[in-house]
C-alpha cells in the first residue's frame, strides 16, 4: 500500500488518545449500567404490585422510554433542561442521566419478568411462614429471580455499551470524537486515515460487546434447559 494509512494508528500518541477516548466511553457506560442495575430492581418490583395506579405509572414510564429513541431523549435532556430550567448539564452528565433512565426502565422489565415467572406458591408459602413483605423479597423472591434475570441483564449491558456511541451527536469528547480529530489532523499526510481509524473503533466496540453477548447467550441456554 502506498500511503500506509494504517500507520496513523501508531504514530505519536494517536493510539493512546483513542484509548483515552475509549475510557471516556467506557466510563459513561459503566456508570449508567451500574445505576440501572441497582435502580432497576426496585422499579421491577414496583411493576409487579397490584396497585393499578402504580402499575399504570410504571408501565407508562417504561413504554415512554421504549417508544422514543434514546437519542431523542438525549436531545430532550441536553437541550431541553438547559433551556427551561437553566440546568446546564454537561454533555457527559446528560448522557449518564438518559442512559440510566432508559436502562432502569429496561432492567425493571427484566426484573418484572423474572419475578412474575416465579410460582404463586412461593409467595403463599412465604406468607404462611409469617415472613414480612421485605423479608419475602430479600430471602425468597430475589435469590430465585436473580438467576433468571442474569442473561437479560448482561444482554442489556451490551445494548447500553453500544448506545454510548450516540454521545458523539451531542459532542462529548470520546472515542469517536478523538477519531475525528486524528483524521482531520492527518488529512493531507495520510488520506486513508479515516478507514483505519473508524475500522479500529468498529473493532474496539466489537471486542467490547462480543464476549459479553456470548456470555449472555451461553447462560441463557444453560439456565433455560
Amino acid at each position: 500500500m502506498r500511503d500506509l494509512g494504517i500507520r496513523v494508528l501508531i504514530e505519536g500518541v494517536n493510539l493512546q488518545r483513542l484509548l483515552l477516548g475509549l475510557a471516556v466511553t467506557a466510563r459513561i457506560a459503566f456508570i449508567a449500567v451500574a445505576f440501572s442495575m441497582v435502580l432497576g430492581v426496585p422499579f421491577g418490583i414496583l411493576m409487579t404490585r397490584r396497585n393499578a395506579a402504580l402499575r399504570f405509572l410504571c408501565r407508562f414510564y417504561l413504554e415512554a422510554m421504549r417508544i422514543i429513541p434514546v437519542l431523542v431523549w438525549l436531545f430532550i435532556f441536553y437541550f431541553g433542561l438547559a433551556r427551561n430550567f437553566h440546568i446546564n448539564l454537561s454533555a457527559a452528565a446528560a448522557a449518564v442521566l438518559v442512559f440510566t433512565l432508559w436502562g432502569t426502565a429496561e432492567m425493571g422489565d427484566i426484573v418484572r419478568g423474572a419475578v412474575t415467572s416465579l410460582h404463586r406458591h412461593q409467595y403463599e408459602s412465604a406468607h404462611a411462614l409469617g415472613l414480612s413483605e421485605v423479608q419475602l423479597y430479600l430471602y425468597v423472591i430475589i435469590p430465585q429471580a436473580a438467576r433468571r434475570l442474569v442473561p437479560g441483564a448482561i444482554n442489556l449491558t451490551t445494548r447500553m455499551i453500544k448506545t454510548t456511541s450516540l454521545v458523539v451527536l451531542i459532542g462529548i469528547v470520546e472515542m469517536l470524537k478523538v477519531g475525528q480529530q486524528i483524521i482531520e489532523s492527518n488529512f493531507l499526510k495520510s488520506p486513508t486515515a479515516a478507514f483505519w481509524v473508524y475500522g479500529l473503533i468498529f473493532f474496539l466496540y466489537f471486542i467490547l460487546c462480543m464476549p459479553v453477548s456470548r456470555l449472555s447467550k451461553r447462560l441463557e441456554r444453560r439456565w433455560q434447559s
Partner: peptide, 12 residues
C-alpha cells in the same frame, strides 16, 4: 452486526 453500534457502522 449485533456487537457494533449503527453509529460506528455508518461512520465506517
Amino acid at each position: 452486526s449485533r456487537n457494533t453500534p449503527l453509529v460506528i457502522q455508518l461512520f465506517f
